[in-house]
Design a protein around this nucleic acid. Structure first.
Length: 196
DNA sequence: AGCGGGATTTTCT
DNA sequence: GAAAATCCCGCTT
């Protein structure tokens, strides 16, 4: 019997401190999204951490219009547009004024799978096994940049933590600098993980 | 199963 | 002007 509780009571403590710790802590947590009158729940199964001292991070070069949300208070959504056509989303972590965030790379639908498959015109793991795929499935775009995850239609719910022995720690995907940093985290053997 | 290229536009130099 | 925290398709093994 899985216990799901609102993370509201845990904000901001739950999302502050060491960003790698928070990225691991977010594994297993629930994203609750209401779209087209349907509320779906998905489990976070893959994350990456980014912070100001990391050359691969958008916040590395300081606060800009694009990264403003990333430097803001934790618990909000940082959405960026990339490769001319894709959106990716992060959960902003760290205290106000600190540029850190956790990229959501893969989610496992807990219900409404057919609904999400229809939205994506894909089946099975292809619906949410990548950072831009999950944004497409959930209809997340620039309008959600800065959204407070305490509130509908997009909420973060906390669960019991994933045990350390079930968490795989490895290098991040798709970056050209600081490629050796071990800042990607995923739930071992989960089929929705974007890349082994 | 794995590789390579193209799509397409924001963002900062 | 170049690169980008990606994805999809087609081709080859």
């Amino acid at each position: 019997m899985m216990t799901v509780v609102s993370a509201k009571a845990l904000f901001p403590t739950f999302l502050e401190g060491d960003v790698d710790t928070v990225a691991k802590r977010l594994l297993g947590c629930i994203i609750e999204r209401t779209i087209d009158g349907v509320t779906v729940r998905l489990r976070i199964v893959e994350t990456e951490s980014y912070e100001e001292n990391d050359a691969a991070s958008h916040s590395y070069k300081g606060r800009t219009p694009r990264t403003d949300v990333m430097f803001g208070p934790s618990g909000h959504l940082y959405v960026y547009f990339t490769y001319g056509m894709h959106y990716c989303c992060n959960i902003v972590t760290g205290s106000d004024g600190v540029g850190q965030a956790v990229l959501l790379r893969a989610l496992e639908p807990l219900d409404s799978q057919g609904f999400l498959e229809a939205r994506r015109h894909k089946i099975g793991v292809e619906v949410t096994n990548g950072p831009a795929k999950l944004c497409s499935a959930l209809g997340i775009d620039r309008h959600h940049n800065g959204h407070n995850l305490r509130n509908p239609p997009l909420r973060l719910l906390a669960t019991q933590p994933v045990p350390p022995e079930e968490i795989v720690v490895t290098t991040r995907i798709g970056i050209s600098t600081n490629q050796d940093a071990l800042r990607r985290f995923y739930i071992k053997d989960n089929p929705y993980v974007s890349k082994k």
